[in-house]
Amino acid sequence: MISVEDFRTQSHALLIELDAATMGMMVLVSSRCVSGPAWDDATKRHHDAYEIWNAFLNVPDSGPATH
């Protein structure tokens, strides 16, 4: 089981990447660029960031320590 501080540090880093990936997609949407290589790269980045975040949260014993 990881410590509360390690959980916070890791989750913060993962959330920063997920937020950056989301913002990257939103910039493309506002630029009306929702197809092509830039869009493909942005959606892959977002997908990967979400998958890593989801895996982090759903690993047994990956939650914060209770003591």
Score class of each variant (00 low, 15 high):
I16E: 14
L18H: 07
T66A: 11
Y50Q: 06
D61Q: 10
C33K: 14
M25K: 07
S31H: 08
L18S: 03
D61S: 10
V4C: 13
S35Q: 12
R45Q: 12
H67F: 13
M25I: 07
Y50L: 09
A20Q: 14
G24L: 04
V59W: 01
C33M: 12
I16S: 06
T66M: 14
H46W: 09
A21S: 11
E5Y: 12
L15G: 05
M26W: 06
S11N: 11
R45D: 07
V59R: 09
M23E: 15
I16T: 14
A38R: 06
G36Y: 01
A13L: 12
L14I: 03
A65C: 12
H46S: 10
I2P: 05
K44Q: 15
G24D: 08
A42M: 05
I16K: 13
M1E: 12
L28M: 07
D41N: 12
P60W: 00
I2D: 01
H47T: 12
L15E: 14
W53N: 01
A13S: 13
W39S: 04
D6W: 10
P64A: 10
G63T: 00
H47D: 15
A49F: 01
I16D: 14
G36Q: 05
V4M: 09
D61R: 06
A65V: 06
W53D: 02
N54Y: 08
W39D: 02
I52L: 07
F7M: 07
D41P: 00
R8Q: 14
P37H: 00
A38I: 02
H12S: 14
L14T: 02
H47I: 00
Q10T: 13
D48I: 03
A55Q: 09
T9H: 11
M25L: 14
A38W: 02
M26E: 15
S35N: 12
I2W: 05
S3H: 11
I52R: 03
I16N: 09
T22E: 10
V59G: 04
L18R: 08
D61M: 09
E5N: 11
A38G: 03
L15R: 15
I52C: 04
L28S: 06
R32W: 08
A55I: 02
S62G: 07
S31W: 04
L14A: 05
S30W: 00
S30R: 10
H46N: 13
I16V: 15
L18T: 03
E5A: 13
D40R: 08
M1D: 13
V4I: 09
R32T: 07
M23T: 13
A55G: 05
H67G: 14
D40E: 15
A21R: 04
D19S: 14
A65P: 02
D61L: 11
E51G: 04
A42E: 04
H46I: 01
A21F: 01
I52D: 04
V34H: 06
D40L: 09
D41Y: 08
S31V: 01
L14C: 01
A20D: 15
R32A: 14
P37M: 00
I52Q: 02
N54W: 05
K44V: 05
T43N: 07
S31E: 15
R8D: 14
